[in-house]
C-alpha cells in the first residue's frame, strides 16, 4: 500500500494541519507501513458480522429535558485566547 504525498496533504487539509515537507514524507512512509499491517484485517471473514461501537452494549441513555445550570459566561470565557463583549474572538473569516 502506497500513500502519496498528495494524499497526505489532502488528509492534512481535512484535519486542519499544516505539515512541513519533511514531515509529509515521513508520515507518508510510516502511515503506509501501518496501513499495510492493518490490511491483514482483510483475512478475517466478517460477512454478516455487526460492527461494535461500544463494548458494553448500552443503547441510548435518555434523561428528562430539564433546564439545568451550566458554566457562567465568565467561567466559560476564562481560557479563551481572545475575547470581546462576552464572545470568543477569532481572526477574520473572510
Amino acid at each position: 500500500m502506497k500513500i502519496t504525498k498528495d494524499e497526505v496533504l489532502h488528509v492534512a487539509a481535512l484535519a486542519r494541519l499544516e505539515l512541513t515537507d519533511d514531515v509529509i514524507d515521513q508520515f507518508a512512509g510510516q502511515i503506509a507501513t501501518i496501513l499495510e499491517y492493518v490490511d491483514t484485517l482483510n483475512q478475517v471473514d466478517t460477512q454478516g458480522v455487526k460492527p461494535t461501537s461500544y463494548a458494553t452494549f448500552r443503547t441510548n441513555a435518555f434523561r428528562e429535558d430539564i433546564k439545568r445550570l451550566s458554566l457562567e459566561q465568565d467561567t466559560a470565557l476564562a481560557n479563551a485566547p481572545a475575547q470581546e463583549d462576552g464572545c470568543f474572538k477569532v481572526p477574520k473569516i473572510l
Binding site: 481560557n79 479563551a80 477574520k92 473569516i93
Partner: peptide, 18 residues
C-alpha cells in the same frame, strides 16, 4: 478558539487554526 494555545501570528481563521 475557545481555550488552549493560539498562534497569534496568523491573520485569517483557517490559517490560525492550521
Amino acid at each position: 478558539v475557545k481555550y488552549g494555545f493560539r498562534d497569534t501570528n496568523q491573520t485569517g481563521l483557517a490559517e490560525m487554526q492550521r
